[in-house]
């Protein structure tokens, strides 16, 4: 399969990346090439193979329910492009 221009647009929208028409066209070619490479995986018989999530074969570690973090609003906000009165500020969200 190839990734046509409309698909690039759709995927770029999902990923929240603005692409110009020229970029979209180049990306369509590049992504299609990558996809073509990926599709060689279809040669592999994976019947009955459980998809692998992690190479780690242990029990997931758990932590105790204790408050050990937080209380650092100034540090949390320090890198923000815009903040006021302890809040992050963003362009208005319209529903």
């Amino acid at each position: 399969m190839s990734i046509d221009i409309n698909t690039v647009r759709k995927v770029a929208k999902l990923a929240r990346i603005r692409t110009t028409d020229a970029e979209t066209e180049v990306l369509s070619g590049e992504l299609s090439k990558i996809l073509k490479m990926i599709e060689q995986l279809n040669e592999v018989n994976t019947d009955g193979v459980e998809p692998m999530t992690s190479v780690i074969e242990m029990k997931m570690p758990e932590r105790e329910d204790k408050v050990t973090d937080g209380g650092i609003p100034e540090k949390i906000l320090a890198n923000a492009p815009e903040h006021t009165a302890g809040f992050f500020v963003v362009p208005k969200v319209v529903e």
Binding site: L14, A15, L27, I34, L41, N42, V44, V49, E50
Partner: peptide, 29 residues
Amino acid sequence: KRRILIGTYVLSAGYYDAYYNKARSVRKL
């Protein structure tokens, strides 16, 4: 950007099994 887009594509509805799950199975092999 290329990698974000290809990653978004392989996880998106309709392609997940064909690409992402397939790759995870091959990873197991």
